[in-house]
Design a protein around this nucleic acid. Structure first.
Lengths: 233, 233
DNA sequence: TTTTTTCCACTTGGCAACAAGATATGCTTA
DNA sequence: TAAGCATATCTTGTTGCCAAGTGGAAAAAA
């Protein structure tokens, strides 16, 4: 096991240092096994791990190749500028795609964050953030029907909560304190984010408050692909 | 592969939901393989992955068991309070252990951040942050000998850079803008942090400036075990 | 009856042989 | 000569068997 990890470290460092470039062919499993004097199974595990970490891809009958790593976008986590503005200002092509709006059952943390009663109806609206035609983040907003009474009707069409809030007469916002966690994507998440299963996601939990009335407008969860960003705070 | 991930998702969700408690025995590989109607190898891979993610441990001849997950400590990333103060204020037992002080070769990013010339000598001082007797973070400070001329002599004894700076007459500090990244530990890191290889680390890169003179005192890299913290920003 | 020993059934761990896909080479045939 | 086909060989992917560790049950000994 320790031997495996040393080989993984070495290959990753070789990729980072440019010793292996994008789409370069790696040694075959047998070659590497002979080179390190380990059973082929060890190298197989190494290559499988590197695949799921998104460093390489393997083709049966052909070999294993280095994936070209995409750029790292600097992202300022604090501050009030919207995600779309940040991306556009940095010169990226950006679009947002609404992928679901559905009612959720009672959840203590979310309902409490919204100041909602157990009998209230709460909907979650999910938008996929797509930069340069690559999905890189999932933005989920939880909103109470008691605050937005037409959310069940129009929720599926919202791509910008900001625009929606403005139409409803909310113009100035304040964000709640934010909590960061790191977790691995579930199958659902790595399928829609088009990444492999060992790309950690950085999850930002926060909320949005109307400055004038103090109303909690939404509870927010944002899942960022950690391989796509440098987070600035 | 997709089947594997579904089973992993299910077991992780079972562990989080409390369906499996700490130190509970999981079904044997053959039992699970029969239950899901997949080859045992699939379940083997699932259990191996869960081991390296830190969810379970397996003993040859006995079986696989759920690890007891340690607490998540809330950690405010911004703010000037030192790490040790934060931990002590939260009622944790804290200590810091100096594990290395050595000169580094020329590195553009670090030297530039320190405002050092290519001919300057720069040292890195590593302290292991140990909370409740568990190492949970590695704090690396890069300092230039041109600023601290006795760093090569006393560097190995420093456990608190804050105290060291005060002795040198620096009393008020300002922190540079911080960048967050997520990466996996190298063998060196997961050995000293006593974690498994698939625990993502949250890396905070920042720096410390003396408020009075504007001198850059250090360039900082902190490696946090992401499974031990909720990061508040 | 009690203690000790042996053995067996079940667990995870490791490996080697086999299957399947891709490509290059050389042979056959027009 | 050139095109097409068979084949050998190299690649990754899969499966199944055996080794090693554990603990309890059964058998043997005191």
């Amino acid at each position: 096991m320790a031997e495996e990890m040393e080989i993984i470290d070495k290959i990753i460092s070789d990729i980072h240092s440019g010793r292996y470039g994008a789409n370069d062919k790696l040694p075959s499993e047998n070659e590497l096994a002979d080179y390190f004097n380990v059973p082929r199974m060890t190298i197989r595990k190494v290559y499988e791990r590197l695949q799921e970490m998104g460093y390489i891809y393997s083709r049966q009958g052909k070999g294993s190749y280095v994936k070209d790593r995409q750029m790292q976008i600097p992202l300022v986590l604090s501050g009030d500028e919207s995600f779309s503005r940040k991306m556009i200002r940095l010169g990226h092509h950006f679009r947002s795609k609404n992928i679901f709006c559905e009612e959720i059952g009672y959840n203590k943390a979310i309902f409490h964050s919204l100041g909602a009663e157990e009998t209230d109806r709460v909907f979650k609206i999910g938008r996929l953030r797509i930069v340069n035609n690559r999905p890189i983040a999932l933005h989920i907003s939880y909103v109470a029907k008691s605050v937005f009474d037409d959310i069940d009707l129009y929720g599926k069409e919202i791509t910008s909560m900001f625009d929606y809030y403005q139409k409803k007469g909310f113009t100035e916002f304040e964000s709640k304190s934010s909590v960061l966690k790191v977790l691995f994507p579930t199958k659902f998440l790595w399928e829609i984010l088009e990444c492999t299963s060992l790309i950690p996601l950085l999850v930002l939990e926060t909320g949005c408050i109307d400055k004038k009335t103090g109303t909690v407008l939404e509870h927010t969860e944002i899942f960022y692909r950690s391989d796509c960003f440098n987070f600035v705070i």
